[in-house]
Amino acid sequence: MLLCRHILLLAATVKQFIDFIPLILFFIVYKLEPRAVELAGNTYMLGGIFSATAMLIVSSVVVYGIFFLLQRKLEKSQWLTLIACLVFGSLTLAFHSETFLKWKAPVVSWLFALGFAGSHFIGEQPLIQRIMGHAMSLPQPIWTRLNIAWIAFFLVSGAANLFVAFTFQSIWVDFKVFGSLGMTLLFLIGQGLFLARHIHDVEPDPSATKSKD
Rank of each mutant, 00 (worst) to 15 (best):
L162D: 09
K76F: 15
L91T: 05
E75V: 01
G179H: 03
L80D: 01
G123M: 01
V164N: 05
A84I: 08
R145D: 08
Q125V: 13
P139F: 07
F163G: 07
H134Q: 15
P141Q: 04
Q140L: 14
S109W: 02
I171G: 04
A152R: 06
Q140E: 12
L155P: 06
F116V: 00
W172M: 05
F100Q: 05
M136S: 13
I199D: 01
Q78F: 14
G133W: 11
Q125Y: 12
A135L: 06
A84N: 12
F112I: 00
F95P: 02
F168G: 08
A113K: 00
I142H: 07
T144C: 15
N147D: 03
I131T: 05
S119A: 01
R130F: 07
E75Y: 10
S90N: 13
K104I: 05
L186M: 07
G190Y: 05
K104P: 04
P106S: 09
A159E: 13
I148V: 15
L138E: 14
I151W: 02
H134P: 14
Q78D: 13
M183R: 06
L193E: 12
G179M: 06
L162T: 12
A160Y: 09
G182W: 03
H198G: 03
A196N: 10
I122D: 11
V108W: 00
V108F: 01
Q140H: 15
A84R: 04
F116Y: 09
Q78Y: 15
S170W: 06
